[in-house]
């Protein structure tokens, strides 16, 4: 089933100026897909993301989430229930001073009974591996932990799509890994549709599909492998290859029969194989 369909959407923060943050994007995301959206700062990634759960309504074109048009205000609540969103700054998303109260916020908003909220908190914290922190204070947690709480807060509403808007940008490597692991698990085990916005190239490798945005438009769309094999284009859009891919490319240019590795492990295998063949 089609989870998200964007039909030639445009968005301008100041109307009538003719400068569009998103300028005519057409994109379809299937249920269960894990899509990474890449692009430089200011390429329109976040604007695009906010159009998927009706935080922004397209100036032109249509955004459709599970068959519901975001432009119709009657749909807003349903759309937000099915498309949850995690933001960039881990400090700016929690509303309560205690973890479980924060996770409860979404379920409270959709009017669930008390007992069900309790169950949802248990489920959501378990899914992000934060059960032990149920009564903790968010401000004392690490960045990665805070983001996992934010994910739990979204999960507790049981959405079908999870949009992560540069949610790893402000984290240290450990925090990034924690968030990535949780998101991958949700996608693999629960079939959660994931739209993952990032400018860390190595994170895009975990996705089924990568979309590159540049100046408000989608300029590349394919599997991460396909995208990374077009390194000259990537560079044109201000992105860089993951370091392992860069090394692999340079080795190939130096005459070694390698190419196609994106991770350190694959790179080592490649080198090993070609050295042994030599």
């Amino acid at each position: 089933m089609e989870a998200v369909r964007l039909e030639n959407v445009k968005f301008a923060y100041r109307e009538g100026e003719g400068s569009y943050a998103v300028n005519g994007v057409t994109l379809s995301v299937e249920e269960g897909e894990f899509v990474a959206v890449l692009g430089r700062n200011g390429s329109g990634k976040s604007t695009l993301a906010k159009m998927i759960n009706a935080l922004l309504i397209p100036t032109e074109g249509r955004a459709i989430v599970f068959g519901l048009d975001t432009a119709d205000e009657k749909n807003t609540f349903e759309i937000r229930k099915s498309a949850g969103m995690v933001f960039q700054n881990p400090d700016n998303q929690t509303v309560a001073s205690i973890v479980e109260d924060d996770v409860a916020f979404g379920p409270e908003n959709i009017g669930l009974p008390r007992e069900e909220i309790g169950r949802r908190i248990g489920f959501a914290l378990d899914a992000v591996g934060m059960s032990a922190f149920r009564s903790a204070t968010p401000s004392r947690l690490s960045g990665g932990q805070k983001q996992r709480i934010a994910i739990a807060g979204v999960l507790a509403v049981l959405p079908k799509i999870m949009i992560l808007d540069e949610s790893t940008a402000m984290l240290d490597p450990k925090g990034r890994r924690e968030v990535m692991d949780v998101v991958k698990k949700l996608n693999k085990e629960r079939g959660m549709t994931v739209i993952f916005i990032t400018h860390f190239m190595d994170e895009a490798l975990e996705a089924d599909r990568a979309v590159v945005m540049h100046r408000g438009e989608t300029v590349m769309d394919g599997t991460p492998r396909e995208i990374f094999s077009r390194s000259d284009e990537l560079e044109m859009y201000g992105l860089a290859l993951p370091r392992a891919a860069y090394i692999s490319k340079k080795l190939a240019e130096g005459g070694m029969p390698v190419g196609g590795a994106f991770r350190a492990e694959d790179l080592a295998e490649e080198i090993c194989a070609s050295l042994q063949k030599a």
Partner: peptide, 20 residues
């Protein structure tokens, strides 16, 4: 120590295990 290492070091580690 729970710290990362560079891609180059990750690669070199594996190669070393393979005797390179």
């Amino acid at each position: 120590l729970g710290l990362d290492i560079p891609v180059t070091a990750k690669c070199a580690r594996i190669l070393k295990e393979r005797g390179i």
